[in-house]
């Protein structure tokens, strides 16, 4: 009985792993294809499609656009999220439950609908489609996340430590800089990282709100119109590699700091 259980568990787990890894493996393997179609048989390995990606000015500029949008929108989202979390934790505001609910509400709405709403009012206000508009959209989706993460880490404990600091003669600025920020650093870093990931990977808002200069996911989408293409494999593999490296760095920085 126990032996059968072990056996079936192993088979099942391997099958699920195979399912999970199948598309990634196919993506990476055929990015090394030397012929023009990313389909069997495998003809590589060759780096020609990676060279094609790096020599494609549209893709490289989209990459930088994506990075810029991700970094700037995440910094704005974290700053706004931190300020509001701090405000809610320190002061009892009238209707604070309602306001907290309002700030976290966008979490429950699909990106498509948020993007569409922004498109509608930007149209009405005559705001042109561009990266800035997409960045605004990314702040809308990431702000509630940053707020929720940072707010959940602000307990009475933190408030008391701040009080102690003020009691010992620290000015507001010094309390913020020397006490509050260092204490909340893990939550702030985590929300910054998550925001950047979501912004980096976000498609539909950027798709709706940008026109000529656009982000990498949208540019990849444009590539898809040409059908199956090893170049898409190569750019996808690159994005995957960068994300995995970023995730490992995140893991090392954040989780190693925590006492076991």
């Amino acid at each position: 009985m126990r032996v059968y259980m072990k056996f079936f568990s192993a088979v099942y787990a391997l099958a699920v792993y195979a399912f999970i890894f199948l598309p990634v493996a196919v993506l990476v393997v055929f990015s090394l294809q030397s012929t023009a179609f990313p389909i069997p048989p495998f003809t590589g390995p060759s780096s020609r499609w990676y060279e094609a990606v790096l020599n494609d000015p549209r893709l490289t500029s989209a990459l930088f656009n994506s990075l810029a949008v991700a970094i700037i929108s995440s910094l704005v989202a974290v700053a706004l999220g931190f300020l509001s979390a701090w405000g809610f934790a320190r002061f009892t505001l009238p209707g604070s439950a309602v306001m907290r609910g309002l700030i976290t509400l966008p979490l429950t709405v699909s990106y498509l609908i948020i993007g569409m709403g922004l498109l509608v009012i930007f149209n009405m206000a005559g705001v042109p489609k561009n990266l800035l508009a997409a960045g605004v959209g990314h702040v809308v989706i990431n702000l509630p996340l940053c707020f929720a993460i940072i707010y959940s880490q602000m307990g009475d404990h933190q408030i008391n430590i701040e009080r102690a600091a003020r009691d010992l003669g620290a000015t507001e600025a010094k309390v913020l800089w020397l006490v509050t920020l260092p204490m909340l650093w893990p939550a702030i870093f985590a929300s910054l990282f998550l925001s950047m990931t979501f912004s980096w990977d976000e498609f539909v808002i950027s798709f709706l709100l940008t026109r000529f200069d656009t982000t990498l996911p949208v540019e990849i989408w444009n590539l898809l119109r040409s059908g199956l293409n090893p170049k898409t494999n190569a750019v996808g593999s690159l994005v995957f590699a960068v994300s995995v490296v970023a995730a490992i760095i995140f893991e090392l920085i954040l989780l190693r700091r925590r006492p076991a």
Binding site: I20, V24, V26, D201, L224, L228, G236, V239
Partner: peptide, 22 residues
Amino acid sequence: LPFWTSYVVRSYSWLLVLAQNG
């Protein structure tokens, strides 16, 4: 781990797997 592939790319990868000559 495959979470870290971009959303668009993940769907595209399945297209590679499931295509007529995939």
